[in-house]
Design a protein around this nucleic acid. Structure first.
Length: 406
RNA sequence: GCGGGCAUCGCCAAGCGGUUAAGGCCUCGGAUUGUGGUUCCGAUACGCGUGGGUUCGAAUCCCACUGCCCGCCCCA
């Protein structure tokens, strides 16, 4: 048998689990302070949820989903979690509660893509979703929370990029304008862009194809359509966001070409990028999605959220060393060693003993690697009812009784 | 889906056609029969991703396959 972990999947080993726990602990701490509640939704959902929620023009839905059929149901391993959280929000009538409703989550996501640095087929996201607030204060709350979380993780060298995609009305106008501007050289664009032209012209601006970008330049596209012309309401929303960010001293770059690949975004979109990752440099991406709840069958509900890639976060933080045990019991009397170990653990101390009752030199060698202190329990100690405590850093040794120890 | 790179012990790694495939780390045992940071000794690949081929002879050359990594696309 030679079965290996599947392409794009990874075992998270004991040696790296401390980092993961650290990230999760920070998330818990930061999000609780802001009154976000943790939610855990299923790992697979009805395929329709993602087709409608994420959008059938997106790459995620078109070519990256793990979809299978069971009992005539089409099911899909979640490629992201916003749609799932919205589904749960509706299914459990959270809209009946007084807004805002604020969730956070942490869990594995699945996308069938070619793995590379910072990208796996099974990866983990931490995210937040916030429902019921129309004001830009919610956008700010989310961005602020992301920045605070990253700071708690010890990550500072990051750039926040923002943009506004407008609402459906101003976006429609922009799309038309964009299509008109592109029409003359449309046929020369890459295949992807030709498809985007009809389905989702906004994404053309985001094209990484050199030939396309050259065409944009030749035709002066970026001057002709400098960005979405926001309607007064969207414009005010965006300005308010910037005002808040300035007031909070959160530095950001306005990137008019930040479009994002999921269909549900409206108004605010943002990304947080690092210079210390490979080419997959976004650690956080999110925005407002005022239309999604309605798309999935609820009342029109304003909402904002973001997600972070945990593997990418992890690659930015220093490896954290395993904590050492409080005690390692060194003894040639296994019975006494187990009994002592049990007592220590009952008192909340971490401890282990030598299962093979090897010679003291070996036991101490092991002890010095995995524990802070060794408890020596030899013939003499047992006879006279004391324990020799040895500090494995300083080599200091002294006699103690059990009561002093625990 | 399209490019590029790499595959030798648990880990790092030498080897570039010719006897028994260096070395380091880790692990285990011993010197030290009840005391670990140093030192010394010993053990651990009949095997060089898999399958073919070339050759008197291949880890070393050729072909195919597989796996991993990196990049494009897209995204976290």
């Amino acid at each position: 048998m030679n079965i290996k972990a599947q392409k794009g999947t990874k075992d998270i080993l004991p040696s790296e689990i401390t980092n993961w726990q650290f990230i999760e602990d920070c998330a818990k701490k930061v999000f609780n302070k802001a009154n976000f509640k943790e939610i855990r939704t299923p790992i697979f959902e009805d395929t329709n949820l993602f087709e409608r929620g994420v959008g059938d023009t997106t790459d995620i839905v078109n070519k990256e989903m793990y979809t299978f059929t069971k009992s005539d149901r089409s099911l899909t391993l979640r490629p992201e979690n916003t749609a799932g959280v919205v589904r749960a929000y509706l299914e459990h009538n959270f809209f009946r509660e007084s807004p805002p409703i604020k969730f956070w989550y942490f869990g594995p996501m699945f996308r069938y893509e070619r793995p590379q640095a910072g990208r796996q087929r099974q990866f983990h996201q931490i995210g937040v979703e916030m429902f019921g607030v129309q004001d830009a204060s919610a956008d700010v709350e989310c961005i602020m929370l992301a920045v605070e979380f990253l700071k708690t993780l010890g990550l500072n060298d990051l750039t926040v990029e923002i943009n506004s995609l407008g609402c459906n009305t101003c976006r429609k106008e922009f799309k038309d304008e964009l299509k008109k501007a592109i029409a003359p050289f449309k046929d020369k664009l890459c295949e992807d862009c030709q498809n985007r032209y009809e389905k989702n012209p906004l994404r053309i601006l985001d094209c990484k194809n050199e030939a396309c970008n050259k065409l944009f330049e030749e035709n002066n596209l970026r001057n002709k359509v400098s960005g979405i012309k926001l309607c007064p309401e969207c414009s005010e929303h965006y300005n308010k966001l910037k005002l808040y960010l300035d007031a909070l001293n959160i530095k950001y770059i306005e990137n008019p070409y930040l479009v994002r690949g999921l269909d549900y975004y409206t108004k605010t979109v943002f990304e947080i990028k690092s210079n210390n990752l490979g080419s997959q440099n976004a650690v956080c991406g999110g925005g407002r999605y005022d239309g999604l709840v309605e798309t999935l069958g609820g009342e029109k509900t304003p909402a904002v959220g973001w997600a972070m890639g945990v593997e990418r976060l992890n690659s930015l933080i220093q490896p954290i060393e395993d904590k050492k045990l409080d005690y390692y019991v060194v003894s040639d009397n296994q019975l006494e060693a187990v009994k002592l170990t049990k007592k220590l653990r009952e008192h909340g101390l971490s401890a282990e003993f030598d299962y093979n009752s090897r010679k003291f030199a070996k036991q101490l060698e092991k002890a010095s690697k995995i524990a802070k202190k060794a408890l020596i329990l030899g013939e003499e100690e047992i006879k006279n009812n004391f324990i020799t405590v040895k500090d494995l850093n300083t080599f200091e040794q002294r006699k103690m009784n059990l009561q002093e120890l625990i």
